[in-house]
């Protein structure tokens, strides 16, 4: 898993989806973010950086 979503914090603003270079995020019908294709995530961190709600995080591997 590359992306971890805190669904209860997400307000469905769509910023992460708009800035995702791989276009793998989508706001669902209930206005929560959904990961369409986790495997294609390149962990660029754009979503985490721009999320105003602390709702989406790139999972970092423990070193």
């Amino acid at each position: 898993m590359n992306l971890k979503i805190y669904t209860e914090r997400c307000k469905g603003c769509g910023i992460c989806a708009a800035f995702c270079p791989k276009q793998i995020l989508k706001v669902s019908e209930i206005e929560k973010i959904e990961v369409l294709d986790d495997a294609s995530c390149i962990k660029c961190g754009q979503c985490e950086l721009r999320c105003p709600d602390f709702a989406i995080n790139v999972v970092k591997e423990e070193k």
Binding site: R9, G12, E48, P52, A55, N57
Partner: peptide, 24 residues
């Protein structure tokens, strides 16, 4: 990571915050 920063510096149990969707 932001997740760790929230854990460290935010008061527990206070998210989600009151701000509107998309508020900066």
């Amino acid at each position: 990571t932001m997740e760790k920063l929230v854990e460290k510096y935010f008061r527990p149990g206070r998210l989600p915050h009151i701000w509107c969707p998309g508020c900066g």
